[in-house]
Design a protein around this nucleic acid. Structure first.
Lengths: 152, 152
DNA sequence: TACAAACAGGACGTCAATGTCCAATTTCCG
DNA sequence: CGGAAATTGGACATTGACGTCCTGTTTGTA
């Protein structure tokens, strides 16, 4: 239902929000979120073009959130990488009903609307400060120490 | 968000429910739902393997619903062609929390749950008997007459 | 029985999503 | 200045979704 890319983008953003306003390198994010680094790099570039993150090259550089976690919603992240497309016109070519969707597509759009609403009202700050003891991400955002095993 | 295949399957089922318990040929369904016939045929085969429709070969044959429209939910159709996969375990490999999802994946699963609930509580009969004057499908299930224009 | 209507299933083609790799560029710091 | 750290971007491989086509099989009816 949700693409890999959306999953990866959200993981990265949650991690960045956790570290916000500090910048993190792609390597750090990839390690913590378990996303293949080369692909994560693409996702991050995409998020950069959509003004969700900003990036800084060179030593000491990295990627950081443009907004404060309290001001950034899950929906904004999702829409940056793969916009939720609401059903606004009849998918069949018919112009019979202008705005009226048929019952089927009305239900489908209702489902999309509920997802949009759920994501649109949740900020990254809320995700981070979940009352349950569970840490952000599934991983307790460990200390990022483990070096990759030697690969001959 | 919803795949093309899901969209096609639902269109076909709505049409079949409208005609239920009568059987329809793939050609009729393809015409009414504006789904490419060869592909629709695959989708229908899939629905057949999942006991959503039954098919009858030979002259006078066609495809018909196994259940009554009042007994068939949108969710059953969707799950037949592309199951909604709830997030039950941490997508990161972590076993730290057994059942507890992290806040992010909890929200994502909540969204999936809302879609599942919306689809699971809507029967095809309800879709057909929408109080709004709008006919099923976007198209008023026209008389299926228009032949394809000559394509030189 | 023979023919035509209809689905079944396999082989194939195309394209976008996913993922990898490498050269280029920017930037800090010695 | 020169090198190391870091992102950027393009080229490439792989896979599954989407779609087409053709041959076979079943079945009703003249």
């Amino acid at each position: 239902m949700f693409s890999q890319t959306v999953e990866y983008a959200l993981r990265a953003i949650v991690f960045l929000a956790h570290k916000s306003p500090q910048a993190c390198t792609t390597d750090q994010i990839a390690e913590a979120t378990q996303v293949p680094k080369p692909y994560l790099s693409k996702v991050l570039q995409n998020l950069g073009r959509n003004d969700i993150v900003r990036s800084q090259r060179g030593i000491g550089g990295g990627v950081s959130l443009v907004k404060m976690p309290a001001e950034l919603t899950i929906l904004e992240v999702v829409n940056a990488v793969e916009p939720i497309e609401r059903i606004v016109t009849c998918p069949l070519g018919l112009k019979s009903h202008g705005k009226n969707l048929c019952p089927l597509h009305r239900r489908m759009d209702d489902a999309l609307a509920s997802v949009e609403a759920a994501f649109g009202t949740t900020t990254l700050a809320e995700v981070l400060s979940e009352p349950t003891g569970s840490p952000p991400l599934c991983d307790p955002v460990k200390s990022i120490a483990r070096k990759a095993a030697t690969k001959p």
